[in-house]
Design a protein around this nucleic acid. Structure first.
Lengths: 396, 396
DNA sequence: TACCTAAATGAATCGAAGT
DNA sequence: AACTTCGATTCATTTAGGT
């Protein structure tokens, strides 16, 4: 059976079967290993360390594995400054097959350490998350949700060749379809979310400012430090106080810091001594919350901005509509993409409004009008109506 | 590096090589098949039909493949081995393998039909999107973005055991890492989005109300009809008017309806006659937008190149003119051949601009200024004026 | 102190044309 | 096919520095 399983798993390549845990094997291992050392950062390769840990001993896993970014060359901002990207050795893989093997190995090792009702969160980007998700399924994990972390302040796409990469993806999975007694603090999350169910899209800023660990020269210690708010949401969603949270790619210890603050235990594994040392020092300085304070502090979603294109998509403005200034003199045509055309010149409502007046800037929302029931109405009125409709839809 | 990368992505495992399109093979196929019938719904299995179509004939693919309900039914069977469910779940193995094979087949068939610079959008949920993404990568597609469609009105999670599944995932991919000349209407999207780059998270309501197709008894015709706004965003992002858009899982024809409205051609494939019939009727009733609202936005990077020497030849800049940076500090002299001189150093406006700032590169058009009516004006303004004159001359 | 402006920066698979 | 040149391109946020 195992052979068949490997063969079918998308035929991505030979999977090392010896690394999957087997019933019986775990107890033998257990006899040879010490108890799980809680609130410790293990220094070493995560697969080796995971195999040395007692089976079925942790309640939750959070993993932030290398993304296999495959970057080439340098990227510069429009002002010619250089983007300090990820070029660390730990993110270098020979091939997708190589990355798949790595993923299979650490995931199956982590799975052995999970209690039967434990769950696992993995975070990634489009570079690696599809490999991770497929491997999870191949290993028998049961996906409960995929979750998107929406970044309120992502790095722009400097070359204007793609959409701004404004999110990362988390996969939340149990050990299998029958593990139905996993922890999910539904009520607490809902109570902290204006009595609405917590959705699969989470909005947080990226990790900057004083939260971002810096070394003596003011340089970031770790290139991909995750925000504590993200980890807090995860721990508050899928663990109880006192639970053990495992992070096999501990880095600078965000998981440990949040776990300590929220009254959970952590087990961290990190192979880079610089990171591990920074993590220990960081966690040392964390003050645990008082017991009664251990409730969710959800990030409130800011009022979304409404681009002009949204009104078109919502059917409030038809493409081809004529917009004019308040006097009805200057005329532009609405395009389906939300730009407007002044003769052959095409641009945003703001840019074209500025151009039409010969001014450096213009608020297109108040400048442009549309004929509505025989009267010229500023398009801002349409936006106000749209926002009101949205609020009503959300409330009901 | 890049070659190696591509080579290994193909060598991921025993894949049915015969299904990957090969250079040379396409023309032979082309000779045996009829021309592509545009604005047609082909009735039949999508893999069969795709293989009958001429190679390299479409500009954009949108695909909404099935989640494979059979897979879900089998996966929810009780799993005997809770400790390690991987070993014994033969049914699960069968289903994943089937789904992966199906995905491989339709994706490689679609790839053959794509023009070299065409791109592909696939939409899915966590049930299938990881299989699809991995297969895309294995086939050599190059992922440009993953995009999340955030649903403003998702179905709640009734059991309260998971996060509300409030999004679906799209993958946008080109045929390979070297296909860099794909269509992306960056400027138009930005103009319609408050002059900010379009991000990878898109907010739309699900398809309801009068847009949702109903049959005689008032039941929805198709279980997963996508909103037209989503397709409009896709077509406006990655195609031009007149382009051919292929949808191999046409359903009730949202892609066709939007394509017709936006002045694109469509090719639909649908194996269910009820859906195909409903789609044809639906598209029949769509009114295309007027050309006026569709005229292509002139992307800045597609404007004709104007060398600096041309401005001198046209008399817009006199040889000997002094150019300065915006602050008026650094000064260079314009030479009659279009080069500039910084002291004894002579070079292009770009080279000397970079040198003057100590940067690796510089856009001389925006860096250098000339005194015009008492004010410092970037030489880019002169170029813009020249281009406008040229356009006017061409038009008359 | 309060306020304003400039500078820095983030998991990034981020050209095209001519020689 | 490799190399050179042209020249297009950024958003939210924090921090530092100056008035």
């Amino acid at each position: 059976m195992r052979t068949a399983q490997r063969a079918h798993t998308r035929a991505v390549g030979p999977k090392p079967q010896s690394k999957v845990s087997r019933p019986g094997a775990s107890s033998a291992v257990l006899a040879n290993v010490p108890d799980l050392r809680k609130n410790t950062v293990y220094l070493g390769d995560c697969i080796d360390v995971l195999r040395s840990l007692p089976a079925e001993s942790v309640d939750l896993v959070f993993a932030d594995p290398p993304y296999n970014l495959q970057l080439e060359g340098q990227l510069s901002r429009p002002d010619q400054s250089t983007v300090d990207g990820v070029d660390d050795d730990w993110d270098k893989f020979e091939s997708f097959a190589d990355y798949d093997r790595f993923t299979w190995d650490w995931l199956s090792a982590a799975r052995r350490v999970m209690k039967p009702d434990a769950t696992l969160f993995v975070i990634g980007s489009y570079h690696n998350i599809f490999r991770v998700g497929s491997t999870l399924q191949d290993l028998g994990f049961w996906i409960l949700n995929d979750i998107v972390w929406l970044k309120s302040n992502p790095m722009p796409n400097f070359r204007g060749r793609r959409f701004t990469n404004a999110h990362e993806t988390l996969i939340w999975a149990s050990k299998g379809p029958d593990a139905k007694r996993y922890t999910f603090n539904y009520e607490a999350l809902k109570a902290g979310n204006e009595d609405c169910q917590m959705r699969s899209d989470w909005l947080f800023p990226i990790c900057t400012g004083r939260e971002r660990l810096k070394n003596g020269e003011g340089h970031k210690v770790h290139p991909t430090q995750k925000p504590e708010a993200l980890l807090a949401r995860i721990l508050l969603s899928a663990s109880h106080p006192g639970d053990v949270v495992l992070d096999p790619f501990f880095g600078t210890g965000t998981t440990g810091a949040v776990a300590k603050r929220l009254g959970r235990s952590f087990v961290g594994i990190e192979r880079d001594e610089t990171y591990a040392t920074a993590a220990r020092a960081r966690i040392e300085g964390v003050e645990p919350l008082a017991d009664e304070a251990l409730s969710a502090a959800p990030a409130k979603r800011s009022e979304p901005r409404v681009p002009f294109a949204t009104l078109i998509e919502a059917g409030l403005v038809e493409p081809g509509t004529i917009l004019t200034d308040a006097a009805g003199r200057t005329r532009v045509v609405v395009r389906p993409d939300g730009a407007v055309a002044l003769g052959a010149i095409i641009g945003s409502i703001h840019k074209i409004g500025a151009l039409a007046q010969g001014l450096p800037a213009c608020n297109g929302w108040t400048f442009w009008h549309v004929l509505h029931e025989g009267r010229l109405v500023p398009i801002d009125a349409l936006r106000a109506g749209f926002r009101a409709d949205q609020r009503q839809a959300r409330a009901s």
